[in-house]
Design a protein around this nucleic acid. Structure first.
Length: 619
RNA sequence: GCACCCGUAGCUCAAUGGAUAGAGCAUCGGUCUUCGGAACCGAGGGUUGCAGGUUCGAGUCCUGCCGGGUGUACCA
């Protein structure tokens, strides 16, 4: 259905200004003032940004300084030329004040007209998208994230991929893209060989009957130690040591079990069929708790029937060849490690599966972009994967963006990879439990605002705050760096934390509850807002930048851009709310300010929702 | 050895090649007879690891060092 006035209703101020600058630059080029190639314009126009300081206005353009040299003119003169054309650009005068003289070396500063700002905010208040325009050219984007090995318990290492991937998928979807999320489960690899070997050599039937998940987890951990046979590990585990002594070939036998599974051995296949639902139930419980869902669960096993064909194809194309019994793609010289697609024992590798996956997705989903949200330690794998896929020449792939969205390691407060005191990796579920438990202690320490809370509500709040804290701490960090995990820091009630943001939402909601305000009626009746105070204006323009923040998240796949913006918004709101009365105000001021509160609350709530973080009405 | 990532306030971290490098915590001070004080405002605190280079402009790009992390043939 056509949205009659959509484009007019939802204005992205920065985009509008960039278009005006585009017009100005084209005029400049047409006038022969400076030569600008058509493909340069995008880059120059991107130099329109939010100002560093409100005293310079709302937006600034800096391209005059870059263009001055080749124009053979002073930067300020070029800036003056641009500003002149800017003022005459279609649609400019309706939204922006006439630009003044260039400042400093040649900054063109632009201020949004107060009446345009007030009108845009009023429209956003009445809009279920809160004024955020959808992208003009929606893409099909595959987001590949989480992808745990189902045979092992999920641990702290899975949190970042899951949380970051989910947030990116939600944000792209809200932006208007066609997003396909796929949990590429590790359900076919060596870890199953370990469980199979363990099942055959040291299972505990009673334990499996009582708690199948726990027993499979035990087998995995035990057999991994036996197969690795590291003396320092065996020294602290007498059970594993005894098994290792009795089965010196365990490592090789595990690989054999894996190979048998891959070859279709009936016994191993039947066991795999038996184990899979158990493994799925385990991870589903965690996804439920994190409120993370996927459109597809196409694990490694799904692609297994295609793997032999992939290898044949690569060999026939002359890309892959035999080496030391294995088959690999040699991308660089012979001294560079090849991209192995088949092991000497005949088994396939995750490289093979990933190639098959790319081909399958290309055929069935026809994506414009594929994002792999995976640990930075796999950077080389993805470099080789993308390069091999390109050389493979799959039809349509040349127009697909393949992106490894890498992230750093989770560290403990000692700066080393996050482990328990005993040195084991931390289970994800135990981590969530501890977060919720600590959140409960914080929530339970309060006073009259929570007096009426029952046990159920209190538990719900603790769950929301605890899980939110863990997610937000992760998302608010630049994803490329390693990140130090600290419950104390993430549960602080001040600063850029989930609890602070959730509290900000609760405060806004509190106004409407306390004032008995009908928010729906407020939105319908909001024809204009008044921005007489600088703090009202500052809040208003911040609110209109929601779409810009989301746009910036997408361009670099960086959710921390959104958390930072939300935190700034909460700050603008606090300053506004602290110095101006709302419920106690009268007449149009009251309605206008209530409208600002309503929009702030909804944007904060939606922003957190796009990060996969819940909110509560009271806390 | 080679490749990639990272070195920013005491601590944890931000900062698309743009204006005076910003937050939070911690420290110190201030506001307000609380529309939810879990608030607001302010101060001190920096040679952005070091040295060069490119640029009108460098925390950001390039080169070389120093320090840390990760990866580097049949795990994923």
């Amino acid at each position: 259905m056509r949205d009659d006035d959509g484009p007019q209703r939802r204005v992205n101020l920065r985009s509008a200004l960039r278009e005006a600058f585009r017009h100005a630059l084209e005029c400049l080029a047409a006038d022969g003032v400076v030569a600008i190639a058509p493909d340069e314009i995008d880059g120059l126009v991107d130099q329109v940004r939010e100002t560093a300081d409100a005293k310079f206005g709302d937006y600034s353009g800096t391209m005059a300084m870059a263009l001055a040299k080749r124009a053979g003119k002073k930067p300020r003169d070029v800036a003056t030329d641009i500003a002149r054309h800017l003022a005459a650009a279609p649609g400019f005068a309706e939204l922006f004040e006439s630009p003044g003289d260039p400042v400093g070396p040649g900054f063109i500063n632009v201020r949004v007209r107060d009446d345009a700002l007030a009108a845009a905010v009023a429209r956003a208040v009445a809009d279920d998208r809160m004024g955020v325009a959808a992208v003009e050219s929606p893409q099909t984007v595959v987001v590949d994230f989480s992808s745990p090995n189902v045979a092992k318990p999920m641990h702290v290492g899975h949190i970042r991929s899951t949380v970051i991937g989910d947030a990116i998928a939600r944000i792209l979807r809200f932006r208007g893209h066609h997003v396909i999320t796929d949990n590429h489960l590790g359900d076919w690899g060596t870890q199953f060989g370990m469980i199979l070997w363990g099942w055959k050599h040291c299972r505990d039937d009673a334990a499996f009957a009582a708690d199948p998940t726990a027993e499979l987890g035990r087998l995995y951990r035990l057999v991994r130690k036996v197969a690795d046979a590291k003396p320092e590990e065996l020294a602290s585990d007498s059970v594993a040591a005894a098994l290792a002594a009795a089965h010196p070939e365990a490592g090789r036998e595990v690989l054999l079990e894996t190979a048998k599974l891959h070859e279709g051995d009936p016994e191993n296949r039947a066991l795999w069929e038996q184990f899979m639902p158990v493994c799925r139930a385990e991870i589903d419980r965690i996804y439920d708790r994190l409120h993370v869902t996927f459109d597809h669960w196409l694990g490694e096993s799904f692609f297994q029937p295609m793997l032999a064909g992939v290898v044949e194809d690569l060999v026939r194309a002359g890309l892959a060849r035999e080496s030391r019994g294995a088959i690999g793609v040699f991308l660089g010289g012979d001294d560079e490690p090849p991209f192995l697609v088949r092991k000497a024992d005949g088994a396939f590798l995750y490289a093979t599966t990933d190639l098959a996956t790319i081909r399958w997705r290309l055929e069935h989903w026809k994506p414009d972009r594929m994002l792999y949200v995976v640990d930075h330690r796999q950077g080389q794998h993805f470099e080789q994967l993308f390069e091999t896929a390109r050389r493979w020449g799959l039809p349509g792939l040349e127009n697909v963006d393949l992106v490894h969205v890498a992230f750093g390691t989770v560290l403990g407060e000692d700066g080393k990879p996050f482990k328990t005191r005993a040195g084991d990796t931390v289970g994800l579920e135990a981590l969530l439990d501890e977060g919720v438990e600590r959140a409960a202690a914080v929530v339970g320490s309060g006073d009259e605002a929570r007096a009426g809370m029952g046990d159920d509500e209190r538990r719900h709040v603790a769950e929301t705050v605890g899980i939110g804290a863990i997610k937000y701490a992760d998302l608010s960090q630049n994803r490329t760096t390693d990140y130090v995990f600290s419950f104390d820091k993430m549960l602080q009630l001040t600063g850029n934390t989930a609890a602070y943001m959730q509290y900000a939402v609760a405060r806004v909601e509190g106004i409407f509850l306390r004032g008995g305000i009908d928010r729906e009626a407020l939105r319908r009746g909001c024809s204009a807002v008044r921005l007489s105070d600088p703090k009202e204006r500052a809040l208003a323009i911040e609110l209109l930048r929601f779409g810009e923040a989301l746009e910036d998240v997408e361009s670099d796949a960086r959710p921390n851009v959104l958390t930072a913006w939300l935190y700034d918004l909460a700050g603008s709101y606090s300053a506004f709310y602290d110095s101006l009365s709302v419920l106690k105000a009268e007449g149009p001021d009251r309605d206008s300010r209530l409208a600002l509160c309503d929009l702030t609350g909804r944007i904060l709530r939606r922003g957190l929702d796009l990060l996969g973080i819940g909110t509560v009405e009271k806390m």
